[in-house]
Simulated scan of single mutants.
Amino acid sequence: MSLDNSSRISDDLPQQVVAALRAVCGESSVALHAPRFKGNEWKYLRDSLDSTFVSSVGAYVDRFEADLAKYTGAKHAVAVVNGTAALHVALLLAGVQPGDEVLVPALTFVATANAVRYCDATPHFVDSNEATLGIDPDSLRDWLGRMTEQREGFCINRETGKIIRVLLPMHTFGHPCAMDALQAVASDFGLIVVEDAAESLGSWYGERHTGTIGRIGTLSFNGNKIITTGGGGAILTNDTALARRAKHLTTTAKLQHRWEYEHDEVGFNYRMPNLNAALGCAQLELMPEFLASKRRLYQRYREVFSGIAGLRLVGEPAHTQSNFWLQALLLDQVGAGQRDSILTATNDVGYMTRPAWRLLHQMMPYRNCPRASLAVAESLVQRLINIPSSADIA
């Protein structure tokens, strides 16, 4: 009898999800995550245009960096063209060398691994934790204990002979990783922590903002993030010397001079334009409202999904405060086989839903990279569904 009941629930699950989304989102088509402009965006953009400073020099770039530093509690913020550029430079600042390995979650957006490749280094994929969706510190410790050795102060992969230089946790969908435990693993194995906080502006691990816990952190302000600058990203650090070098590297490594063009190393044209920063200043002013709206949306979704067997709504991990950037459903074993049916049913009626990313070790550029057992990530990716999450839904 229980098997028949489970089968019935599973078969009905796509329409139950559609009905729940309709109760929250209404009848019209709804995007997965759309930007919201209702503050000083036009005013600041017009001011930037009137000033004629629209490129990588201008008052709004300086203001946006200062506002970000104040909001996150970081000592320094360096604004750049996008989150991937921020990650690339952050890894260079952390000392990643050609041939090194960087510990990366298999469950993340491809930019996390791409930035490692930009450094001529190799992503080394590790497993996730179901409670946080980020890197699992216990399985990581076990893996490193079995697969690495300490040699001259470096963590060495016994199989490849390469230095594992950096641990690169990503705060999935805005939910903070278990950073204290990950920091402890990094300390014990001689690793530098660089946080990919692209999705987690407005998220807190205890009293610390994500992106400020490791040595360096990065943010993204793409059009689908909790605030947007159109494109854009930022590097966060409490190290003044690193911040100075970040600004130098992202500004083509040009030495300051009234007229001479002198560059003392290979740099990158990664600085954020003033126009984008102007938009960011206005958006950041709206963060309290955005966060409140997203938390209301989470609570509304929790109400409508609580009575549906076969899934649960992903909540914030213990001792954290999530920005709830992307709301997510996690199917259990009853509903596990219905992921694609749910995606089809919801998109057919205009509710944009998406699976999590394809695991990175399954993608062509990364199939031959070193990896730990990825049992949890391989389970999660088959069961996660992102649902409409824009701040203006609730």
Results as ranks from 00 to 15, higher is better:
149 E>G: 08
125 F>N: 04
73 G>T: 13
7 S>F: 07
332 D>A: 03
162 K>C: 13
75 K>C: 11
97 Q>Y: 02
39 G>M: 07
263 H>K: 13
164 I>F: 01
319 H>Y: 04
69 A>E: 12
111 A>E: 12
3 L>E: 14
128 S>N: 12
60 Y>T: 11
120 D>K: 10
121 A>W: 03
341 S>T: 09
313 L>R: 10
123 P>W: 03
318 A>R: 12
296 R>G: 09
20 A>I: 09
231 G>I: 07
162 K>V: 04
313 L>V: 12
252 T>M: 06
220 S>F: 11
59 A>D: 15
266 V>H: 04
106 A>R: 05
178 A>G: 10
128 S>I: 03
356 A>V: 06
356 A>R: 03
47 D>F: 01
336 A>E: 14
200 S>Y: 05
49 L>C: 07
314 V>R: 02
351 Y>W: 09
268 F>A: 07
393 I>S: 08
43 K>V: 14
372 A>Q: 13
36 R>C: 09
318 A>E: 15
146 R>K: 13
208 R>H: 14
175 H>E: 06
212 T>W: 00
29 S>P: 08
315 G>W: 03
113 A>Y: 02
86 A>C: 08
221 F>Y: 11
172 T>F: 08
244 R>T: 15
95 G>T: 13
314 V>G: 01
362 Q>V: 07
184 A>W: 02
130 E>R: 12
153 G>W: 05
87 L>N: 10
330 L>Y: 00
380 L>W: 02
347 N>W: 09
132 T>R: 03
57 V>H: 14
287 M>P: 04
382 Q>Y: 00
165 R>Y: 04
270 Y>L: 03
162 K>Y: 05
115 A>N: 08
